[in-house]
Design a protein around this nucleic acid. Structure first.
Lengths: 160, 160
DNA sequence: GAATTAATACTCGGATATACACTGTCCGAGTTCATCGGG
DNA sequence: CCCGATGAACTCGGACAGTGTATATCCGAGTATTAATTC
C-alpha cells in the first residue's frame, strides 16, 4: 500500500510550475531533466494532471505546462487523486455474504462496521491532504537562497 | 494504492475470534470456510497476526487460533500493520538530490515540505486506525439476532 | 487396565505458479512555431 | 519585404516490455491429540 513514484514527481513538478513567471510554460522534458526522472513516464503523470484540470499545456516548440489555477486553489489531494486515482484505499469485498449463516441473500446496502471504519480512516487521510495547497507547499519549503536563485536562473534559460 | 484483501480477512477473523468462549481455539480451516476465502492464503494472514502477537495458535488436532490480548487492547492499526506491513504510504525518493541546482551533495537529513506533508497525512490515517479497537468493532456491528445465534451455533460445532 | 507406540490432524514455513499493477520505453499522429524560398 | 511552404520541436495517446507485488496453491517438517498395541 504505497503511492506511486509519480505522485512524488507530480507534487514536485507543481511546486516548480508555481514558481514560473505569469503565463509562461515549462516543457515536460525540462521538468524531467531537473528532477532526474524519465521524461516519457513523467509525461504520463503530467497528462493526468492535465486531464484533472490542474495544469494546462500547449503544443509546439514553445509548448509545455503551467498551472491552470491559482496556487491556493490546488490541494495536495487534487494532485494525489489525479495521479493515483480516486479509489478508496480499502476495498471491501463483502465477505459477509459468503457466510453460511447469513440471513438474506442480498446485502443491507450499508457497509459493515469494519468497512465503515476503514472508509473513515481513508477520509481522515484525504481530509488532511485536502487542507494543504500548493501555496502552503511553497511556504513550507525552506531552501537556501543560493539554491533558489540558481533554480530560477536554470528555469529562465528554458522558458518559452 | 489499495490495501490487500488479507487485511479485510484479518479484521473479520479477529471479529470472529473475539466471540469465542474463553480459552477456546478455532481452526484456520473453519475461519476460511466461514468467510469463503482460500484456506492456505488466509493462513498467511493469520501467521502474520501471530507473529505480531495479536493472536496465538496451538498445533495438533485441537489446534487453531484465538486472540492473544483482550479485545480492547487490539487496535485496527495493529491488525492492518501486522498484515500490510509498516511501510509509510508515501515513499520519498529524494528527487531533490537530482536537481542540477542543489547546493550540497548530501541531504539535510530533514524531509522536504512535500514529504513531510505526506507523512503527516499518513499519520492522520494511522491515528484514526489506532483509535479503534476490536471491542469497538463488535459494538458497531449491528447484525440481526437470528444471524448472530446461527453463527454462534456454527462455531460451537467446530470448537476444540 | 496402564503404559507405550503408532497414526492422525493440525500449524507453520518454504517453494512455486499466476495475474495484475507499476515502471519505463518506443513510436506515430497531430499541433504549433521557426525557418526558408518565391513573388 | 511579405506570404506561403517546409521543417523542427513539442504534446498527446497508444502499444509494448520488464519488474515487482498480490494472490493462490502445494508440499514437507514439526507438534499435539487420538487410536492402537503391548504388557
Amino acid at each position: 500500500m504505497v503511492l506511486k513514484n509519480q505522485v512524488e514527481w507530480a507534487l514536485h513538478c507543481c511546486s516548480m510550475l508555481a514558481g514560473l513567471p505569469q503565463g509562461k510554460y515549462l516543457a515536460a522534458k525540462d521538468l524531467a531533466e531537473f528532477h532526474g526522472v524519465p521524461k516519457e513516464y513523467l509525461g504520463k503523470a503530467l497528462q493526468r494532471l492535465s486531464a484533472a484540470g490542474l495544469v494546462e499545456s500547449t503544443l509546439g516548440p514553445a509548448g509545455g505546462y503551467r498551472l491552470a489555477k491559482p496556487v491556493a486553489a490546488i490541494t495536495f489531494l487534487d494532485i494525489v487523486e489525479a495521479v493515483e486515482g480516486r479509489r478508496v484505499t480499502f476495498a471491501c469485498t463483502e465477505i459477509r455474504m459468503n457466510s453460511p449463516c447469513r440471513v438474506g441473500k442480498r446485502g443491507t446496502g450499508k457497509p459493515c462496521s469494519i468497512a465503515q471504519a476503514m472508509y473513515d480512516a481513508d477520509e481522515a487521510w484525504r481530509s488532511h491532504l485536502r487542507s494543504l495547497t500548493v501555496e502552503s507547499m511553497l511556504a513550507g519549503a525552506q531552501l537556501p537562497k543560493e539554491q533558489v536563485d540558481a533554480t530560477k536562473r536554470w528555469v529562465e534559460q528554458r522558458l518559452k
